[in-house]
Design a protein around this nucleic acid. Structure first.
Length: 827
DNA sequence: TGATAGCATT
């Protein structure tokens, strides 16, 4: 029975038919059949040339690890006449199937003349093992139509598995019942598993309950069904029942139940199961070890995860992926990268999931060069086209690396974008401070009919609204969320609290805060920070007290919010107390942001030397924000020497930020040291520094109007400047003197006055005045800090126009009313 | 004679 697809590879050119023995003769007696690669060398073919010795086919079957080898073995079987046996032919079908080659399996299958049930069942499972589920179901129908053999107990388990994947199994269940196979333990377990795949847990559980006999596999099917639908409690209940009935957990049970322990946050249960595995000698099973690595990683216990990984004698792709993900998800990108290179040097080929972890790792390591390497690696394998998940991960990586244009490009290249792709791009723009672009993309997404926003979308778009102060747009989304979903996700609620708080609606933020479940720190952090930026430091402290009373554990973000609240309100003692409590009571190590707040608190309050001593005692290297805080404090308190020292340190670590030059120039100007002002100006000029363009925005008629400094292109430009000129005249009659120290350019005085007048916040305020009813309040947002002159001017404007003016800048809120600011000029 | 099946980890 010559087989045309056999023996076609060029290393065995004459192996067809009867030429085959001659091939061996020409190569002597001891002959290595599979000599193409080292991994195949284990398979030897002994003494074919000397006719009296038998070929060890059993050994050859065992040793086939590649389709090419299987084809040679198949050829050998054909030549030796053994392939005519239906038993041997069926084994060949199974061999091809196990190597992932369904085509060859089917070809061999078709060549077999009198197929029996064994043969048909093997072909069915060949399809299922290779995820060709329609093929499996069709093959069963084919078998049924072939009147000589009937489907039996062995036919249905793989077909039911296929049905589970195809999400269509009612008809098959009827058939199984009709044939009376329902009570076979394998068939019933397959039914249980299939219904669990559909999420029909009640039906699955009923079948499971009614089983007359349950083996380990049946229990495992039910437990895994609950686990995979996220019902960890039920899974653990069934496990208890199983053990009460005297059944022992096996490798499958353990690798199924460990993720449920992680889901339940039940580390004790997880450790007990680990102990059980050790006691019963199951700990070195590759599935069990992998599941243990994943569980310990979820509990943040990298030591245990690493130990399990180290003790493994056999590691597969999942083991490497798990240990890489463990380090990546616990914020240790360096170790994750080390394991990735370890994986490569061990000859394990990475898959798409490896690259998803790797992309996140690189995003954390802030290494743009590696980012490109990862992208290149993926591009060479065309993986972006294959799976949207990897494309999304690469987008996220670029967004986190701050290369948002690349993220956009990857987004454009993803053929079937899902809601996560959109969310990632929206969030990416948001994280890079491009709130308007984020909103633009969100609007584009709204135009896509097949994409529906989810909770993740709201978490990405709402901060963009907070950032621009788009209260009305935020409220619109709030309405939609209430309409769409009965249940408010804690993260979405927190974003809404943030929108209301940052749009100046503290009362609305508070009432929303009281509605959400407050069991984790996230909503607390938001509400504390909102009160902080409004200058209500005492309220922030009271909220912290309430948080402690309710038993909610604060995290490092809580303390950043608290410390910045203290700094905005001048609460020196309370700030120091927080800094102490954070370390002593909660064991949180201060990061640069905490230190920055402390320098700010001390410095603003006038304890400049204390602030400097504090910096000297830091266990982290001070960055620009730390020296910037000290410099800012020196400006307020007119300390030239320390200010000069701080700015020297500052420009060592960041010489590009124009804001710090303005600060220093302002310090000199305040004490009348004009030569210092000139020096700073020339420094700034020499370095050709890139200024962050200042802008302010105002929300009118459901639109956000953005004004850039000295913007002349607005349609109402003329009216705006006219209004400002008239206001300036009135202010001067009330005693306003422009403070030119906020002007960095070296120009004539009248031009300096014009520059100050063109500051974006003034343009926005003037636009508000001419576009809204008399005496109505005005809300302005500015991306940088409001300059001292603008702050002073706004006080005058609030008095002249009898309007309440709320300005939120990059730092905090300023409420102006009757010529006074709520911050008491302390900001 | 022999060979075919369910439940497991990122």
């Amino acid at each position: 029975m010559p087989s045309p697809h056999v023996g076609t590879d060029r290393l065995l050119p004459t192996c067809k038919g009867r030429h085959f023995p001659q091939y061996f003769q020409s190569h002597g007696t001891h002959h290595q059949l599979y000599s193409t690669s080292a991994s195949c060398a284990q398979v030897w073919y002994h003494d074919v040339g000397s006719e009296n010795k038998e070929i060890d086919f059993e050994f050859l079957f065992e040793s086939c690890t590649k389709t090419q080898l299987a084809k040679r073995l198949h050829a050998l079987l054909v030549v030796s006449g053994k392939a005519q046996s239906i038993f041997i032919a069926t084994r060949v079908v199974n061999l091809y199937a196990s190597l992932g080659n369904v085509t060859s399996a089917r070809f061999t299958f078709d060549q077999i003349p009198n197929k029996d049930a064994y043969t048909w069942n093997s072909m069915i499972s060949a399809y299922v093992r290779n995820s060709q589920f329609h093929g499996a179901v069709n093959c069963l129908y084919e078998m049924f139509l072939n009147s000589q053999v009937r489907p039996d107990f062995y036919s249905f388990p793989p077909v039911l598995k296929a049905c589970g994947n195809l999400l269509d199994g009612k008809k098959m269940h009827c058939w199984v019942s009709k044939l009376g196979f329902e009570w076979d333990v394998y068939v019933a377990a397959s039914l249980v598993h299939m219904y669990c795949r559909f999420g029909a847990l009640t039906v699955a559980y009923k079948i499971f309950r009614d089983m007359p006999f349950r083996d380990n596999g049946s229990w495992n099917a039910m437990i895994s069904g609950f686990c995979q639908n996220g019902n960890a409690v039920e899974a653990l209940d069934v496990l208890d029942e199983m053990r009460l009935e005297g059944m022992k957990m096996d490798c499958v049970t353990i690798s199924t139940i460990l993720p449920a322990c992680a889901l339940m946050d039940d580390i004790l249960q997880g450790k007990l199961i680990h102990l059980y595995a050790i006691k019963h000698g199951l700990e070195f099973d590759v599935f069990v070890s992998n599941a243990l690595i994943n569980m310990y990683a979820k509990f943040g216990n990298l030591g245990h995860a690493h130990k399990v990984f180290d003790q493994m004698s056999v590691r597969d792709l999942v083991s490497w992926n798990s240990i890489i993900a463990a380090y990546e998800q616990n914020g240790n990108p360096d170790s994750a990268l080390k394991f990735f290179s370890g994986m490569q040097s061990n000859g394990v080929q990475p898959d798409m999931l490896t690259l998803v972890s790797l992309a996140s790792t690189v995003a954390q390591s802030r290494d743009c060069q590696s980012g490109r390497s990862v992208h290149g690696f993926i591009l060479r394998r065309c993986w972006i086209v294959e799976g949207v998940v990897l494309g999304n991960a690469v987008m996220d990586m670029y967004a986190k690396l701050g290369i948002i244009d690349y993220a956009r490009r990857v987004f454009e290249e993803i053929p079937s974008k899902d809601v996560v792709s959109w969310n990632t791009l929206i969030g990416g723009y948001g994280q890079n401070g491009l709130a308007s672009e984020a909103i633009e993309v969100f609007n584009l997404m709204e135009g896509c009919e097949d994409i529906r926003p989810n909770q993740g979308t709201w978490v990405c778009i709402l901060p963009a609204y907070s950032h621009l102060g788009a209260l009305k747009l935020g409220k619109k989304v709030h309405g939609r969320i209430i309409k769409d979903s009965s249940l408010l996700d804690v993260y979405v609620s927190t974003c809404l609290i943030d929108v209301y708080g940052k749009c100046g609606r503290l009362d609305d933020a508070m009432s929303l805060f009281f509605e959400v479940p407050r069991t984790n720190s996230v909503p607390w952090n938001a509400i504390i920070s909102c009160h902080g930026i409004h200058g209500h430091g005492e309220t922030s402290m009271q909220l912290f007290g309430a948080m402690r009373d309710e038993g909610v554990k604060p995290d490092h973000v809580t303390f950043i919010s608290l410390l910045s609240s203290c700094s905005h309100s001048g609460l020196v003692d309370k700030g120091q107390w927080c800094f102490h409590v954070m370390q002593e009571e909660y064991g949180i190590k201060p990061c640069l942001k905490h230190y920055g707040c402390m320098v700010d608190i001390l410095g603003r309050a006038g304890y400049l030397e204390k602030a400097y001593d504090f910096i000297k005692k830091m266990h982290l290297r001070p960055d620009a924000s730390i020296w910037g805080a000290l410099l800012g404090a020196c400006r307020i308190h007119g300390n030239i020497e320390l200010g000069k020292f701080a700015s020297d340190r500052l420009f060592e670590v960041d010489s590009e930020n124009a804001g710090y030059y303005v600060l220093l120039s302002n310090l000199y100007a305040n004490v009348g040291k004009w030569e210092g002002v000139d020096e700073v100006r020339s420094m700034a000029r020499d370095r050709g520094l890139k200024k962050t363009p200042g802008w302010s925005s105002i929300e009118l008629n459901n639109r956000i109007e953005v004004f850039y400094t000295a913007n002349q292109s607005h349609p109402q430009c003329e009216a705006i400047y006219k209004e400002l000129e008239s206001l300036t005249a009135k202010m001067k009659s009330l005693g306003y003197i422009p403070d030119y120290s906020f002007v960095l350019q070296d120009v004539e005085e009248d031009e300096k006055e014009y520059i100050l007048m063109s500051h974006s916040e003034r343009l926005a305020i003037a636009y508000g005045i001419i576009s809204t009813p008399h005496k109505s309040p005005i809300r302005i947002f500015k991306n940088l800090r409001v300059c001292g002159d603008c702050h002073n001017v706004t006080k005058f404007i609030s008095k002249i126009t009898e309007r309440e003016i709320v300005v939120r800048d990059s730092n905090r809120f300023h409420h102006f009313k009757d010529g006074v600011c709520s911050c008491g000029d302390y900001w």
